[in-house]
Design a binder for these strands. Structure first.
Lengths: 225, 225
DNA sequence: GGCCTTGCTGAAGATCGGCTGAAGACCGGG
DNA sequence: CCCGGTCTTCAGCCGATCTTCAGCAAGGCC
């Protein structure tokens, strides 16, 4: 289990490195935003422990840049204050979990393990469903060997459905995954985009990969429809 | 999403009930340890918000008893102090997450949603009863290798029965699980839907998976009828 | 058998959920 | 600044689904 600790307070960083090493993790450290981001991009970590207040580039930015670059590494943010917006914003920028300082080392380890488990079971980068191919890394979609151009939202929805191929996925979950699912977000938005998506990947091919699950949401047929 | 709030401070419990209801959760409350435990055992909740300091039986004990009885419901503990042992002990007794009082409502909702997602993914995915297959994740049902289209209510009933395959399940429990079981809900509604369900998964196949338990409710035959 | 309780079911009207076209906001590039 | 593409919102439509009701069937008890 490879962990990167990005924390500018040297004493804390060192303590974490020692403690986590003792717990069986392999630990690297970085002490500012830019070098943390660089290390994270260059090496394959399982989880990153990311402080918010960092010199050069704050934790939110490191996090969102990592996500923007397509990384799905597990990110646990350390929020300095315990105001609610720190935490909500952490999740918004793509963090998987967060912990308010001061935190207990025991809890940190428990959270890291839980996070690693979740991350470990994440879906692959390329999903093949019959003649429908969704490439999460390249952000492309192919149907019957024909490239299909999708808008960002359309692709994000398809990608999310593809990660759960064969399962029914609720509109709320899609809102959470594709948008920053505020409680007041509108499920109709999803419907509109799904409608557009079908017009591109289903109708022209006389297929129906995107199925409606009434009362719940949608399901991507495991065989491409 | 069914939530049980176990909190002895009435004002807080009420506030949570209202707030969470507005967020789309279905909320029940209990105000002490023993009644919280009883409710949790009797009803199928997705998540329980559990205060630690409770009359009668404290949160740790409620939590560990639930786990001892085999429940895998999601448990989010509210820790009153913010000492680390509260939190570590909460995780030790089987809680999935915790939140220190005072907490932000926004954060609580985010945590509940995250927890619900995690829980949802560890529930059993398919139930096989003879040639009857109920796939909870995909929300599909198959009888003798034939896909059977069910309406949301029908599927919810079948799903609930399947989770207790072989056991007699009361109509009241079905009302609670599938509907938001107000005290004035009508058992005949269940009968109507069960009737429709049989017409789809039993009659066409000359089988009888859904059995009537007179005076009580229904039972799904463990061997598919 | 008679009677009461409980469960089944067909029909009908009300309601709900999902789909879609259109309008305007928004955004980034030229 | 303008333009094209994309996103969100809105409102209407439609069919699927739900609930209610009433009559009938079945079980259980005397």
């Amino acid at each position: 289990m490879r962990v990167l600790v990005v924390e500018d307070e040297r004493r804390l960083a060192l303590a974490l490195q020692h403690g986590l090493t003792a717990e069986g993790f392999t630990v690297d450290t970085a002490h500012d935003g830019p070098s943390g981001l660089a290390r994270a991009m260059d090496h394959a970590y399982d989880v990153i422990v990311l402080d918010i207040m960092l010199p050069g580039l704050n934790g939110y930015r490191v996090c969102s840049r990592l996500r923007a670059s397509g990384s799905d590494v597990g990110i646990l943010m350390l929020t300095a204050k315990d105001g609610e917006w720190d935490e909500a914003e952490a999740l918004d920028t793509g963090a998987d979990d967060y912990l308010s300082k001061p935190f207990s080392f025991v809890v940190l380890v428990a959270r890291l393990r839980a996070l690693a488990r979740r991350i470990g079971s994440r879906a692959p980068r390329r999903t093949v469903l019959g003649d429908l191919v969704v490439d999460s890394a390249a952000r492309t979609c192919t149907r019957a060997d024909t490239a299909v151009a999708l808008t960002p939202r359309e692709f994000a929805i398809l990608d999310h459905l593809a990660r759960r191929a064969g399962e029914a996925v609720s509109k709320r979950e899609i809102l959470d995954a594709v948008w920053d699912g505020g409680p007041d977000s509108d499920p109709n938005t999803v419907e509109v985009h799904v409608s557009a998506l079908r017009r591109k990947i289903d109708s022209p091919f006389g297929r129906a990969a995107v199925q409606t699950v009434r009362g719940t949401g949608y399901r991507l047929a495991a065989d491409g429809g």
